[in-house]
Computed example of a mutant assay.
Amino acid sequence: MILTGLLCGLLLGFVMQRGRFCITGAFRDLYVTKSNKMFIALLIAISVQSVGFFALKEFGVLSVEPAENLAFFAVVIGAFLFGIGIVLAGGCATGTWYRAGEGLIGSWVALFTYMLLSAMMRTGPLGSFNSTLRDINIEHSTIYGSFGISPWWLVALLSAVTLFYVFKQLRKPKLKIAALKPKKTGLSHILFEKRWDPFVTAVLVGLIALAAWPLSVATGREFGLGITGPSANIMQYLITGDDKFINWGVFLVLGIFLGSFIAAKASNEFRFRVPDVTTILRSAVGGVLMGIGATLAGGCSIGNGLVETAFFSWQGWLSLPIMIAGTWVAAYFTIIRPQRLTTA
């Protein structure tokens, strides 16, 4: 059963690579280019997973209950640091895994420091700092629980908002781009050559995220998609050799890497790309902030921004806007301000 994590990861890595599903870009574009298309795609993925998650609970397939407490200060600080980190690293936690599968050396650097700091924040020298900050919590778990309402009201609201922005986006005039003559035909053209629509990609990501729940729970892991914990587990296993760190989540993230590699190789997008020293250093610092931030916040842009939001935890919906704020601050100092200085 644990190998279903590998299958789930393969699908996710393949879909995200071919669909260029980038959560960092979704956050950054809201500020830098004033485009909300990728963020709408994220809302689609959340909505698809949310509908399916509560349907599975309704039919008794899932009996997962969220954590009873909210580590407010840890989530706020961690989400903000994570938002800064993903801009410096050039991708979020999942994006770093799938871009490493494309051959980006900068992503390899960010991935290493991300895994290292995630492990250090759990069982290493920073473990006491992490536990001390996360022990400061308040008794809140879900939004619908706090308000004493059915979660389906929130599912309906989220779905309605998402559909509104989807239709609004689809009504915009499309830019005409000269299409190159396809080199592949049939299914091969669709899978490895044709440009994937972000909204279609988002539906697929949402379905994979939904499938992850019963597959993961069947192995005793009470969660859906998650990147930070499994990434830390890999580093902990490499250091200690203890098999207890090998679980469904570890196979998930390894599958993301392999799925992205397969997609990139088949679409002729795989190549080793070595960045300059400045980019490497920035990637390393970004990975450090990602590891510290995601651990404090209890999740990354997938664990919090995609999964926790889908079942309406306070942690998910608190961390999401703060991650975006961190992304905007980093984007200002790394993109906007340098451009202004150049044109001044």
Rank of each mutant, 00 (worst) to 15 (best):
F223S: 13
I256Y: 04
G206F: 05
P198K: 09
I262M: 11
P198T: 15
E222S: 08
R171M: 03
S188R: 06
F199H: 05
F192M: 09
V200R: 14
G186Q: 02
I190R: 13
P182G: 13
I234V: 15
G220R: 11
T201D: 04
S231D: 06
F164P: 04
T228I: 14
K265T: 14
N233R: 01
E222R: 04
D243T: 12
L252H: 02
L254Q: 01
I177D: 01
K176R: 00
V203H: 00
F245C: 05
P214V: 11
T228K: 03
K265D: 12
G249Q: 06
F199S: 03
F257S: 06
K183A: 13
L163P: 00
K174S: 00
V200A: 14
W196I: 15
V205A: 05
I262V: 11
D243H: 08
V250D: 02
D197W: 01
F257D: 01
L215P: 04
N247P: 02
I246C: 07
S188Q: 12
A156L: 15
R221M: 15
L175M: 00
F223P: 03
I234R: 00
V253L: 07
F257W: 09
G249H: 03
K183S: 14
L204A: 11
V203A: 10
E193K: 09
I227S: 07
V200C: 10
I177S: 00
F199C: 09
A264R: 08
L157A: 15
L170W: 01
K176E: 02
V155K: 08
R171S: 03
F257N: 06
Y237G: 09
S216K: 03
L191R: 01
L191Q: 00
V155H: 07
M235P: 05
V217E: 08
H189Q: 15
W196H: 15
I227V: 14
L254W: 05
Q236P: 11
